[in-house]
Nucleic acid binder design. Structure first.
Lengths: 344, 344
DNA sequence: AACAGCTACTGAACCGGGTAAGTGAACCGA
DNA sequence: TCGGTTCACTTACCCGGTTCAGTAGCTGTT
């Protein structure tokens, strides 16, 4: 019942601790015969290395950290994080790495957690989500020398490697698609304005709006909750010159927006087209189903984990550009009705 | 830049390592004056205990483990797990405990993870989710002597303490409520049949159906996905004697079911009443909004964490019964239409 | 003065691995 | 036959804390 140590194995094999250590780690210094004997005993007694002892002498914890700073409600309802975690986990556990998770209140708390993890040598590296426009974590992590991979970017990441994807192009393509369907008044319900990807999307939105000469393009910030999505949609649709298409920065808000439109007796897509960013299974459950910009999030997590492990191993990891989001058209988008079109 | 150790502090304070250890841990053996001096130095150099060294000598890792065995898609879309994790985390981090997460493929893999964690002394205790009817993890964890708290139960948990809530009563109340609204043909779209709570709910459903003399009460198993919910709903509503009310074991299936009903031009709640188990914000985004059985999941997580920490501390922890789910009625349930009622 | 009892420490062992340096025996070439 | 090399180990110490057994110095008691 007591957990065996290498000393126990050494005693049973009639060799020293050192020999056992060499044998178990596949290092030279023991004969093939002795190695076999030691491995057999280790197997028999169910030996596993004590992680603390390994971490203490090897100065590696074989753990990476992920701190999330979103309120419980949002974390729960956003499939993104769990899908990302699934992907991270798949890669980490395949390489015998653990993942520790901490939910924090804000960016300062997250930084404090990183510092503590580092000082306590609890993790070998961290993943940084929700990159902010002027993110205090980037210079702090650089100063600490704690291996880190930023999920997002690729700008504003300092010297930290990033795993990113281009949001500007898919956004432009989506607006171009809506424009081709005849939409002239398009609104963008964006996410938290302090997040970098919100900035990227918003900038791209205004740029393409200018290019396509859509002077009434409007961006509104939100907090990703369904309530915010509903409230903003209600306001947008109540205005005299209401938009004929709305692009939401997550699926929950898009679903809420669809609900508001239906409550206001607007036909989707006849009177209003809706596009969601983040194509989770939820998008297929509504009626009409939501046209959405989707990516393979677990795969993104796998890449991020691979890169972080490489960075921990001391490799010189550069930025990695993942595939951009793909627009999947479903029932929520369509051509502008002639009447609605005429108002323009 | 190099992280300070107690030896560094000892040198600067002109005392021995032991004295520093006593001072930093608030134990007797040093004068108040010396203690102050040592604490000041520790503060100044930013000392934090090396977690590996502590774990090695103290034989406590200050980490608890949570293994989840659901596919990425389901994990992402079920708010339950993230909300639970938020709650767990709130309590754990307040007590300087970490949470390690692992996503696994099946119950055997989960057990293997528990064994490894135990053998490597990586965790001080584990949380067990998704209790199965005949769960191999229970006897295995008992045999290991690894502190564990089962989230679910209270039966089939052997000698392990559980944090549970009664599903039978809320289910019965829900069926009684539907019955009072005139529903006679009620279906139950249950979750994975191997999960204990599915069994509890299903048994309760048939018991109350017998009591209320609803011979056509039917339970169908599912895998919690929206696709399953849609498929089963389509089949139920296509039958000659279709149900007038359906109770779904999670919100995603309920939303999918609502979609199918609307696609089939059935009025909700006129032709069909819908109740969802798990009241996430999603339930309020549909039209009509979903009547749902909800609980405070983060609070449940806090309790589970408290209990696990108590069990780790060697306290004799008993089962804890949390509040049962509360039915929140919204637009998706209503009285049976006379025409529909007559069919009975 | 002798002794007990206390405080405030010190020194060393210990947790369970990793690893550099050292050792004895076998082997090998000149 | 002897020095050099390699092999297969052993020895001993390290990682950074915790903890237990001393111990020196002071106080109080009789």
């Amino acid at each position: 019942m007591k957990r065996p140590t290498i000393a126990d194995i050494a005693k049973r094999a009639g060799v020293s601790k050192g020999a056992v250590s060499y044998a178990l780690n596949g290092r030279p210094g023991v004969s093939a015969e002795t190695r076999q004997r030691i491995l057999a005993i280790a197997e028999e007694v169910g030996w596993q290395p004590n992680s603390a002892a390994r971490a203490l002498s090897g100065s590696m914890s074989n753990v990476v950290g992920l701190a999330l700073c979103r309120p419980a409600r949002v974390l729960g309802i956003e499939p993104f994080f769990m899908e990302l975690i699934s992907g991270l986990e798949a890669e980490l556990s395949a390489r015998d790495y653990g993942l520790t998770l901490q939910v924090v209140a804000d960016a300062e708390a997250e930084l404090a957690v990183h510092r503590r993890w580092w000082a306590e040598r609890r993790v070998d590296g961290v993943l940084v989500c929700d990159l902010r426009v002027d993110d205090p974590r980037v210079p702090a992590l650089e100063a600490l020398g704690l291996p880190a991979v930023v999920i997002g970017g690729p700008t504003n990441t300092g010297a930290l490697p990033s795993v990113w994807h281009d949001d500007a192009r898919p956004l432009a393509e989506t607006v171009e698609y809506l424009s081709a369907l005849g939409h002239r008044r398009i609104a963008h319900v964006a996410g938290l304005p302090e997040l970098l990807h919100t900035r990227v999307r918003t900038d791209a939105f205004h740029e393409v709006a200018a290019r396509l000469e859509l002077p009434e393009a409007e961006t509104v910030s939100s907090d990703y909750t369904g309530e915010a999505g509903a409230r903003i949609t209600r306001r947008l649709l109540s205005s005299a010159r209401r938009p004929t298409a709305i692009l939401y920065d997550n699926d929950v808000m898009a679903i809420a927006g669809l609900g508001v439109a239906q409550e206001m007796r607007l036909d989707v897509p006849g009177d209003l087209s809706i596009v969601a960013w983040d194509d989770s299974p939820l998008c297929q459950l509504t009626h009409p189903a939501l046209t959405a910009l989707g990516r393979d999030i677990p795969a993104y997590g796998v890449i991020a984990a691979k890169r972080l492990l490489a960075a921990i191993a001391g490799e010189d990891v550069g930025d990695y550009r993942d595939l951009p989001a793909q627009l999947t058209t479903r029932g929520s988008t369509g051509a502008v009705r002639s009447r609605a079109g005429k108002v323009t």
